[in-house]
């Protein structure tokens, strides 16, 4: 499962992201170099406006950048079209958001099935895979509840199930515990941590809570659009 340590699956070099034009330009990222290896659990921290969410969006192929190079598993992302980036997300990346972002009025299992639908799985395969994913987050009993009938922690676990159901290369989590209390937040972190350890799932997580970042194997701090420091908290297995 674990690759050679020297081969990062994500490699950012001199990434610059700016908004506006000419004199009114504001920089979100001012040249970011970042490598993420297979099996790592990286926490990105920093004050708001430091560029941590932007770098996350760029890694996820949701946002563009002005200059620099981004290499994802050997693919030059900067040269991809919009549709190609979408296919990259569809096939290799799982997302978890702060606000859970589940479809309302839609049952947990239907939410989890959603990415499988776009991948073209049959109805039978979809429900089987979705059920397995729900089981792995401990929600098989509420598979037919809608988000409105679930607690915040349960909703986030449905979101995790949706992110991992496609067996992605990398899981991107944007403040996954931001809307949860500490107890629920820690449950979520335990879950993510277990996926990282047991399945070797690469996770990149943005957070501003040290307590949550402590679960990661490496903490990267952003300040003013640049990486301030990068600290390994644990040795990657």
């Amino acid at each position: 499962m674990i690759q050679e340590e020297k081969e990062p699956i994500i490699s950012l070099r001199g990434i610059v992201k700016s908004y506006g034009s000419a004199e009114a330009t504001t920089y979100a990222l001012r040249g970011v170099d970042l490598d993420i290896k297979q099996g790592e659990f990286v926490a990105i921290m920093g004050p708001s406006g430091s560029g941590k969410s932007t770098v996350m969006n760029i890694i996820g192929g949701l946002d563009t950048f002005n200059s620099g190079e981004y290499n994802f598993g050997g693919v030059d992302i900067g040269s991809l079209s919009l549709d190609q980036k979408t296919l990259l997300r569809r096939n290799y990346i799982g997302f978890i958001f702060q606000g859970f972002n589940l479809l309302g009025k839609t049952t947990a299992i239907e939410n989890v099935e959603l990415p499988l639908l776009y991948r073209g799985f049959s109805a039978h395969d979809r429900s089987e895979m979705a059920m397995n994913a729900l089981r792995s987050v401990g929600l098989e009993k509420v598979s037919h509840h809608t988000p409105g009938q679930l607690s915040g922690g349960q909703q986030q676990r449905v979101a995790i199930a949706r992110a991992i159901v496609t067996d992605p290369f990398i899981l991107l989590a944007d403040e996954p515990t931001g809307n949860l209390d500490t107890v629920k937040g820690k449950e979520i972190m335990e879950l993510l941590s277990s996926f990282n350890k047991e399945k070797g799932l690469t996770i990149v997580m943005v957070t501003h809570e040290d307590e949550m970042a402590a679960y990661a194997s490496r903490i990267i701090r952003f300040r003013d659009g640049k990486i301030d420091n990068s600290v390994h908290t644990k040795i990657v297995q």
């Binding site: 569809r90 096939n91 972002n101 959603l114 776009y118």
Partner: peptide, 16 residues
Amino acid sequence: TREIGIRLAIGALERE
């Protein structure tokens, strides 16, 4: 809008 955002983020093509 949010639903469309979710769909696009998890891999729905524009034409889909």
